[in-house]
Amino acid sequence: MVGVIFKHTLRHSWLQALYWGLGLGLMALLVVLVLPLMDYNKMAELIQNLPPFVRAAVGVGDDLEYAFSTEGMIAVGFFGKLALIFAVYPAVMGMRVIANEEDAGILDVVLTLPVRRWQVVLERFLAYLATLFIIAALVFLGLWAGAQLTGQALDLSKLAVSALNLLPTLTLVLVFTVFAGALFGRRTVALTAVTLFVVGSFALETVGGMAKGSAAEGLRSLSFFAYFDALGVMRSGLAAANVAVLVGAAAALLAAGLWAFQRRDVGV
């Protein structure tokens, strides 16, 4: 029956998505509440005197004026700095699509029902994908609530687009986790692969940003964080090319994962 696994997965995961979303939304709220207490000018002066690679490591880049605006601070201080934390949710949920249940033996029951393997994976993936929208919506709500409480004149459409910008990146992490589960089956191996993917990407992005003009800068394009670009999205809106890279990579990995899972032994 088409859609049954999607509905079942969504019914049993939306509450956890809500908790994660509330936690991240609360962090967004706190960041916005704290911003009026900061002296942007002093911070900008301080940062300006630092070498470019340190500025890059902090994540402010060259456009200090925008980076130290309220919106820029939300982009850098919240979306940029907490990117790793955002990536935890799709990794945890992605493990549930295949790896956790295969390790526990639950897949033995599921895959002997009259349903194709790829359908099980796809419906579960789509359910967890849907929960990413809950996360993005609650993050936006946190930002909006902060703006209302502090009376700061924030462009809500920019905040909404920044929250929306989480989706392609989180989707890629979710898909990569599903892919690792489809490929390896074992929870620990899949988890190691995802950790390497996320932390490695973060390291490439950070080092690549710091070492401009070197070979490391070229490697930056291998990091999915390079296409997240929280500051650029807050300033200029979604970059179609970045979204296309992330969504394209996710689609390719999902197809490869479904193909691999369809062919391999389960629960060995």
């Binding site: 049993h12 639950i106 033995d108 029951v109 029902l113 009259p114």
Partner: peptide, 27 residues
């Protein structure tokens, strides 16, 4: 109908919820 040697199911669901889900998948 299949009964595995080591049966694992969703631990947080009740027996009836498990049966309902599997029945739904089976139509």
């Amino acid at each position: 109908g299949f009964l595995p040697g080591e049966l694992s199911l969703w631990r947080s669901l009740t027996g009836l919820q498990v049966i309902r889900h599997i029945a739904n998948v089976r139509g």
